[in-house]
Simulated assay, not measured.
Amino acid sequence: MQDDQIIYPELVEQSHAYLLSRGVAVSKDVVYRNMIKFHLIDQNGQPTQKAINEGLVSETNDPNSLAVFKAQNPLFLPYDDRHFIWVAELQEWTADLYVAKDVSKRILDGRVVGDKEHAKAVLNYLKKQGGGRYE
């Protein structure tokens, strides 16, 4: 780590990743300052009661929660929670076809970073399964 590199709180990192995924080009410093200004986090990066009350952050740190999954996988932050389902026997979250298709297209278009070969394979699989309607 460089001496001049700033380590931002996790909520700032998550918010920054979300904004970037939505096409908003903003620095982490601006995100941090605005989160403090609007009383979403305190000076130490902890969520305020206001942020908790408004449902912007969760008080739980349940590793199986969808919020934690999305925080760990910012690629999925833009998608509504209704597109995800918890598969108990696998102990993991899965996304529906809409998300699989859209994420794959975003990777291939270069809007997000990801495995382009895997994205192509997903789209080809969906095309074969649906008679071409996923192009």
Rank of each mutant, 00 (worst) to 15 (best):
K120F: 00
D102T: 15
H39C: 01
S27H: 12
T48I: 12
F38H: 11
K127F: 04
V87Y: 07
A95Q: 14
E10M: 07
R82Q: 14
A67H: 06
N61T: 08
I7E: 15
F38G: 03
Q46F: 10
K37S: 05
F76W: 11
L108T: 12
R33W: 10
Q129P: 06
I52D: 04
L97I: 06
G114L: 03
N73D: 04
G132H: 06
V68H: 05
E92K: 15
Q43K: 14
E92P: 13
D80Y: 12
F69K: 10
V103K: 08
R111C: 01
R106H: 10
S65N: 05
I36T: 04
F76H: 14
N64Q: 14
K116F: 00
L75E: 11
V24A: 00
S65R: 02
P74V: 00
G55Q: 11
R111Y: 01
V57G: 00
N53F: 00
P47Y: 05
L123K: 02
K50W: 05
L75F: 07
Y32W: 11
K116G: 06
I7M: 06
V113I: 14
Q91W: 02
V122E: 03
F69S: 07
R82M: 07
R82G: 07
T48H: 03
I85Q: 15
Y79T: 13
N53W: 08
K127R: 09
V57S: 03
Q46M: 12
A95Y: 02
L90A: 06
G114K: 04
H39M: 10
Y134L: 10
V30R: 13
G23H: 01
A17C: 01
R82N: 09
Y98I: 08
G114I: 03
Q72G: 15
Y134E: 05
Q49F: 06
V122Y: 03
R106W: 00
Q46S: 14
D29H: 10
N64S: 11
H39A: 07
K70W: 04
N44W: 09
K70D: 00
G23M: 01
D62K: 08
A67S: 08
R33Q: 12
Q129V: 14
K37Y: 13
L66R: 06
D80L: 06
R133P: 04
L77M: 13
S65D: 04
I6T: 13
R33F: 13
R106Q: 15
T94H: 15
K128D: 09
A17R: 11
H39W: 06
P9L: 03
I52S: 04
Q43N: 15
G132A: 00
P9T: 00
V99W: 03
A51D: 12
E89I: 02
N64D: 15
A71E: 01
V30D: 08
G45V: 01
